[in-house]
Amino acid sequence: MKWWKDVMGMELRKILAYRSDFWITFLGQTFIQLMVARALWQAIFETQGVSEMQGFTLEMMGLYYLIAPIGMKILNGPNFGFLAQEIYDGTFTRYLLYPLSVFQYKTLTYLTYSLFYSLQMIILLGIYRLFISEVAFTSVDVGHLFLGLLLFIIGAIAYCMMGMMIEMIALWADNIWSLAVMLRFFTSFFGGALIPITFLPVWAQNILVWTPFPYLLSLPIRTIMGLSTFQEVTQGALILMLWTLIFMEGVKLVWKKGQFKYTGVGI
C-alpha cells in the first residue's frame, strides 16, 4: 500500500510542477472547447427552431461539452508516450530494480492523472453550476456524479491497457505517436466526445455497443448528467471490466512477444 502512496504522491508533484501550464490548461482549454461547442449547437438549435434534439436541450448540450473534454483527459491519463518514451530512451531497464512491476507502476501513475482530472471535473461542474447554468443541472445529483466518475475511472484503466498495448509496439516501431493519436480519434468520435452518439444513425449505434467506446465516454457523461438508469450503469461497468481483462491479456501477449526486442540502448 505504501508503494501506491509513494508513486501517486510523486506523480502528483510532477503534475503540479508547472503551475502556469496547469491553470492555462485547466481553465482555458476546457472553457474554450465548451464555448465553441455551445456556439455550434446554438446555431443548429436556432436553424431548426427547436428546444430539444435527441433528448438534449441547449443547456444540457452545454453541460455535455463541459464534461466531455475533461472526460477525455481522465481517460488519457499522462498522455502519449508514457511507456514508449522510456523504451526509446533505454530507461525501461530501471524497472528491474523497482519493488513493483513496470505495469503496476505505470497503471498507478496513470490512475494518479485520472483521479486528479476527476477532481478537476468536480470543481469545474461546481463553478459551471454556480456561475453559468443552473438549469442544466436539473437531473444531476451527487449520486449520479460519483457513479459517473467511477465509470470514468474504470474506463481509464481499460484505456490505460489499450494504451499500453499500443505503446509497447515501440519495441518494434520507431514512433508510435501516430497510433496513439489514432486511438484518441476513435475514442473521441465513437465515444461521443465530438458529438453525442444518440445523433449517430441507429445502425451505427447498434454496431458501437459491441465496442468499448460508448462505455468509455458517452455512458459516464450521461450518468453524470442523470440520463442513465442504475441498470445501464452496472451493465456498462461490467462490460468495461470485461474489456479491461481482454486488453490486459493483449498487453501480456504483446509483452511476451516484444520483450526480447528491447535493447536498453535507446535511440
Binding site: W172, S178, F185, I195
Partner: peptide, 28 residues
C-alpha cells in the same frame, strides 16, 4: 513504419472531420 502510421493517422483525421459534419447534416 512511422511513415505509414502518419499517413493512416491523417486519413483518419480527415474521415472523422467529414463524418462529423455529415452527421450534423442528418439533423439540420
Amino acid at each position: 513504419l512511422d511513415f505509414s502510421f502518419r499517413i493512416l493517422m491523417d486519413i483518419l483525421y480527415y474521415i472523422v472531420n467529414i463524418l462529423f459534419f455529415k452527421i450534423i447534416f442528418l439533423h439540420t
